[in-house]
């Protein structure tokens, strides 16, 4: 890991929406998703099962260089056999205008239940990953990503 340049940024951060991504996601006054929406999405996804922490690892940067393109990766411990595998993984952004980011569907042929993509985050928020296994169990992980306002606002 390389030394990060986070110290100054941390002091400058508020929870205000990053100007650029706020423009992308709409003007102020729009209602943002919140933890209730996340809970509801997980309930719909998992059929009401309780999501246990662990088994799934979520990787996101601590500070997003730009909210328009934030790398997100996950990996779920699973033998990925016919008898025991990951069926789906759902990624949610708790404070975006709409919580859904993407839902990944796996089969035993996937070999490993891991994937990555790049997402848009409208502001500093928690990102949640939920894995649904073939036996119906749910596992979750979450991480907080700070989204910053850069430069002269340009």
């Amino acid at each position: 890991m390389h030394p990060s340049t986070n110290l100054g940024r941390r002091r400058l951060l508020g929870t205000a929406a990053a100007a650029a991504t706020a423009a992308f996601f709409g003007t102020s006054g729009r209602v943002f998703a919140a933890m209730e929406d996340v809970d509801k999405a997980i309930a719909d996804f998992g059929g009401g099962a309780e999501a246990a922490d662990g088994t799934i690892t979520l990787t996101t940067p601590e500070i997003a260089e730009n909210g328009n393109s934030v790398p997100v990766a996950f990996s779920v411990e699973s033998p990925m056999t016919e008898e025991s595998h990951v069926e789906s993984v759902m990624i949610l952004a708790a404070d975006n205008p709409s919580a859904g980011v993407a839902t990944f569907h796996f089969t035993p042929r996937s070999g490993e239940a891991k994937a990555s993509t790049r997402m848009r985050l409208a502001r500093t928020q928690d990102v949640v990953a939920v894995a649904k296994m073939s036996d119906g169990s749910l596992h979750r992980a979450s991480a907080n990503v700070k989204v910053t306002i850069g430069g002269c606002g340009g």
Binding site: S98, A102, F104, H105, F106, T117, R118, M119, R120
Partner: peptide, 12 residues
Amino acid sequence: FFSVDIDPAVSA
């Protein structure tokens, strides 16, 4: 063997 349902929050 693999698919993704993609929402608008995925980057350009």
